[in-house]
Design a protein around this nucleic acid. Structure first.
Lengths: 220, 220
DNA sequence: TTCGTAATTTAGTCTTGTCTAAAAAATAAT
DNA sequence: ATTATTTTTTAGACAAGACTAAATTACGAA
């Protein structure tokens, strides 16, 4: 399992990402859309990754990561999320600014460095968006979490993550002073458009659209 | 001044490095040797860098960095050295381990990140090998420094840097417990082979070969 | 079942950055 | 000053990773 190119790493990462929601095999087009590359190019690359035993690939039938490929991809996610923690916790970046930098940092080789970084950061288990950080074996802590939208009137919960990590969304949450750890009670759900009215710990009351509520993870 | 590829950055860096010792124009072969690439490839690349106004290049006459090119190259050095400080100071790497990692980290784009990193590290002025860190304008602190080999019997000085940063050399220094900041007096110079005998601050006496003394910077 | 559309792969190019071999220019030596 | 040698550049090829256009396969609908 030598070194892969940045390009190859990006393919593995996007296949892992797609696998998480889509339990069946992943199609060429899906990958192409995910990383913004033509389907033809993806098709080429899949052959190469299959030669390297990183994916199982059968022409016209889609792909799946091998154990090796999955391990490699999870390590990339680990690196990405640890660097994100570093950028927010140590360099004071806000959660909407760290993605692109981490996207570069994750390709720096050196597992020893990452293990030391993890320790330096105090062995964090979640990144600034609430996503879990795999350990150096690829294990991921699973939390019971649900989407805010699934809560009913009267339920209490705490915000533990975001599904959408787009800068605009994160900046919006900042602007209404909502962050990970914010506690609240659902005090109303509008039948018409499924907006939700929350009462926050600090006393503020807030109305959030269905779309916003569909992109926030909570825990009770 | 958009983004350059890692390859282009490496050329600029090696041209800057060669410029420091060699005040005249730099030859194609020198660069080729420095970055371990054929002279033909270097010749190709020099044309591209000249098109981008990063170097002054005249066929058969060698190259020189433009102001823009020099700025860019110094920024790479800045990034390299700040990451080295991070790796030693925060992640507890030793000075012989940080070069290859910094070689990768220096190519991560994001000047804002580097400025924040600098501040996070406490605005260090020198890297773990004693080399100066350029500020974000490219200015470099100059110290009066000389090589240990130039000292005479009876002179007192302090070690402030190393000229050779090869891992084997650095590990040797570690093994004899010499590091930046070590204070000493020259108590003897062997005529025959120019070995030098030092008495360290802690009372130890030490004999160092001419080669070792030629690769240590000191200040009095 | 067969026909049409969508998904996927193949074929052929392009760019970047590398190489070797050969040509051209500069430099050194007689 | 004229060779000989070294340095540098040009020419032609190659691999990685991308593209478009065309061909092929799979699958849903009639």
């Amino acid at each position: 399992m030598g070194h892969l190119s940045i390009t190859e790493e990006n393919y593995l990462k996007s296949i892992l990402k797609l696998s998480e929601h889509n339990h069946t095999k992943i199609g060429t087009n899906e990958i192409a859309y995910e990383i913004n590359i033509s389907a033809a190019s993806v098709s080429d690359m899949l052959k190469k990754l299959a030669d390297k035993k990183l994916i199982i690939y059968q022409k016209y039938y889609g792909v799946k990561l091998t154990k090796t490929g999955e391990q490699y991809a999870k390590n990339l996610v680990r690196k990405h999320r640890l660097w994100e923690v570093f950028l927010t916790q140590k360099l004071q970046f806000s959660w909407d600014e760290v993605h692109d930098l981490a996207e570069q940092l994750e390709h720096v080789k050196g597992d020893d460095m990452i293990n030391r970084l993890e320790k330096f950061l105090g062995n964090p288990k979640f990144d600034p968006h609430g996503d879990p950080i795999p350990d150096n074996k690829g294990n991921i802590v699973v939390r019971k979490q649900q989407l805010l939208i699934e809560l009913k009137k009267g339920e209490k919960a705490v915000i533990i993550g975001v599904k959408d990590t787009a800068a605009t969304f994160l900046q919006f949450l900042d602007s209404i002073k909502i962050s990970l750890g914010t506690k609240f009670t659902v005090i109303g759900v509008v039948i018409y458009d499924h907006s939700m009215q929350l009462k926050l710990q600090d006393g503020r009351e807030l109305m959030l659209s269905q779309q916003v509520c569909s992109n926030i993870y909570v825990s009770s």
